[in-house]
Amino acid sequence: MSSHAVPNLAMNPRQQRYSQLPRHPLVLCASLVGNPMNLGALCRTAEACRLESLVLPDVGIIEERQFRRVAVTTHHWQPLQACAPAHLIPWLEAQRERGYTRLALACDNQAQSLMTATFPQRAVLLLGRELTGIPAELLAQCDQTLVIPQYGLVDSLNVQTAAAMAVYEYLRQWGLDPFPRGNGGDPANASPQ
C-alpha cells in the first residue's frame, strides 16, 4: 500500500491556494477496477468533487496513455493511494480503525438503495471489478452495501458512471460546497479553513 502525493509542480498562486483547500472525507477505492480508462475517469470524478483520496490497484497506472486520455491532468491534483486487490482486507480494516465507514457499491437485491441511504461523513466507497463486481469476502468486510436502482433490462452500469452517481449523492447529503462563502465563485480564491 503506497501513497502518491500531489506533485510539487511549478504552481501559480491560484494553484497553490487550490491545493490547500479542504477535501470531502470520502475515499473512493478502485483497487478492483482494471480498465485504465475507467480509472482515469474515476480520477477525474474524484478531483472534480475534491475527494480525500482515490485508491488505485497500482499508482503506476497513471503513466498509461489510456488513463491519461481520460484523466487529462487531474492526477496532478487528486491525492492517490495504491492498494493491490490482495491487500484490500487489511486496508479496509485500517480504514475502519481510522474511523471511516466502509461502503460497498454493488448490484445486490439485498443492498440499501442509494436513493434512501444516509451516507456517513467519513466513508470509504468500495467499487467492484468490471463484469464481476465485489467478491463476497470483501463485501463481508464492509459495513453497508449500496445499490443504484435500475429499471432497464441490463442490470448494471459502468463502474465510473455508478461511482459518479454515488459520489454525487454523498455530496448532495453533506453539502456540495466545502469552500467558505464569499470566494467570488472561484474555489481557488477561498482561504483554507
Rank of each mutant, 00 (worst) to 15 (best):
M1Y: 11
S2G: 09
S3R: 08
S3V: 06
H4A: 15
N8P: 03
A10T: 08
A10Q: 14
R14K: 13
R14P: 01
Q15N: 05
S19E: 15
S19A: 15
S19P: 03
Q20V: 03
Q20F: 11
P22G: 07
P22Q: 11
P22I: 05
R23N: 03
L26P: 00
C29L: 13
V33H: 00
G34H: 09
G34V: 01
N38I: 02
N38H: 02
N38S: 02
N38D: 05
G40Y: 01
A41W: 05
L42R: 09
L42N: 00
T45N: 11
T45R: 10
A46N: 07
C49W: 15
R50N: 14
L56W: 11
L56N: 05
D58I: 02
V59L: 12
I61D: 03
I62P: 01
F67M: 05
T73I: 06
Q78A: 06
L80H: 01
A84Q: 12
A84H: 12
H87E: 13
H87Y: 04
L88C: 06
W91C: 04
L92E: 04
L92A: 09
R98M: 06
G99N: 04
Y100Q: 02
Y100E: 03
T101F: 12
R102V: 11
R102D: 04
A104Q: 06
A104M: 07
N109V: 10
N109A: 15
S113L: 02
L114V: 03
M115G: 04
A117I: 04
F119R: 01
P120A: 15
R122Q: 14
A123L: 06
V124I: 04
L125W: 09
L126P: 00
R129N: 13
R129P: 00
R129C: 13
E130F: 08
E130C: 07
G133D: 02
G133N: 04
P135V: 12
E137N: 15
L139Y: 08
A140S: 07
C142G: 06
D143T: 09
T145C: 15
L146G: 08
Q150G: 15
G152Q: 12
V154E: 07
D155T: 10
D155W: 03
A162R: 08
M165W: 07
A166G: 14
E169G: 03
Y170N: 03
Y170I: 03
R172M: 07
G175F: 09
F179K: 07
F179S: 12
R181T: 13
G182S: 12
N183E: 13
G185R: 02
D186C: 11
N189I: 00
N189F: 01
A190T: 04
S191I: 06
P192L: 01
